[in-house]
């Protein structure tokens, strides 16, 4: 299949950047990233600068492969990362617009690569348990109701890809932050620090320059791991409770 690619090229954070056109010959069984590999091989042979894009696992679990395809983070396919998106979902002769995730908190490094270390700093501010909770058998020793463990697991499926921020009209990081707060808060080992965690992670999230949540729901539609916005409600609950009902006055 012959495709026209309109790709955002930006040579570093200060560069203004612009869309450039490319032609590429792909096959249906290629993944989207393999199709970009073919393009890059072509560019290297022509002694041109290959398109920079992030990728690592290529099996849908690391969250690296950030890009917006025809206006949709990770492309049009539901619950699918870019690396798991296959060219059979496109047609011969299609024009595909590819650009980076866009948010002030995710500055472009080069072309399609953005700096998502704002997420790392949100995790560093509280997305952990402060004591050693042991190995898997120790965790399995604690009886946990099935519904709760399943909800915690669903939240823990977040791969930190940032598609929620990219999709949000406000570039809000509430879905990511709420998933990280939720999967810890729901389990006994994490619940102990739940209130302080909600406080510090929201404070860091606000500091990074993400927008506020308008409950548009765009994030849960685009999330490759189908994280639900019920997690955002849980974060709201935790944050409201820890602000209003906790006995800490100054901190």
């Amino acid at each position: 299949m012959k495709l026209t690619l309109q790709i955002w090229r930006q040579n570093g954070p200060q560069d203004k950047g612009k869309i450039e056109n490319y032609q590429v010959d792909a096959t249906e069984e290629m993944s989207f990233l393999e199709m970009l590999d073919v393009l890059n091989q072509q560019l290297i042979e022509e002694k041109k600068d290959p398109v920079a894009f992030d990728h690592d696992c290529r099996e849908g679990i690391c969250g690296a492969c950030s890009m917006v395809i025809n206006g949709r983070p990770h492309g049009p396919q539901k619950a699918t990362t870019t690396c798991q998106l296959h060219m059979r979902h496109f047609k011969d002769g299609d024009t595909i617009v590819i650009e980076p995730f866009r948010a002030n908190a995710f500055p472009v490094v080069k072309d399609l690569v953005v700096d998502r270390s704002a997420f790392d700093r949100i995790i560093q501010s509280g997305g952990y348990i402060s004591v050693n909770t042991g190995q898997a058998p120790d965790g399995n020793d604690i009886p946990i109701e099935k519904g709760i463990s399943a909800t915690a697991f669903d939240a823990a499926a977040c791969i930190g890809c940032g598609a929620c921020v990219a999709a949000c009209p406000n570039a809000s990081a509430m879905l990511f932050t709420s998933a990280k707060v939720s999967h810890l808060a729901l389990l006994p080992q994490g619940a102990v620090e739940g209130e302080r965690r909600a406080q510090s992670m929201v404070a860091q999230m606000d500091k990074e320059g993400f927008g506020f949540c308008s409950n548009t729901g765009a994030c849960e539609i685009e999330c490759p791991k189908e994280i639900s916005i019920s997690n955002i409600a849980r974060l709201n609950r935790q944050y409201l409770k820890s602000s209003i009902a906790s006995s800490e006055i100054n901190e």
Binding site: G71, P73, A171
Partner: peptide
């Protein structure tokens, strides 16, 4: 929070 807008607005 998003100074640089998306080129494609079909999404």
């Amino acid at each position: 929070s998003r100074k640089n807008r998306y080129v494609s607005n079909q999404g």
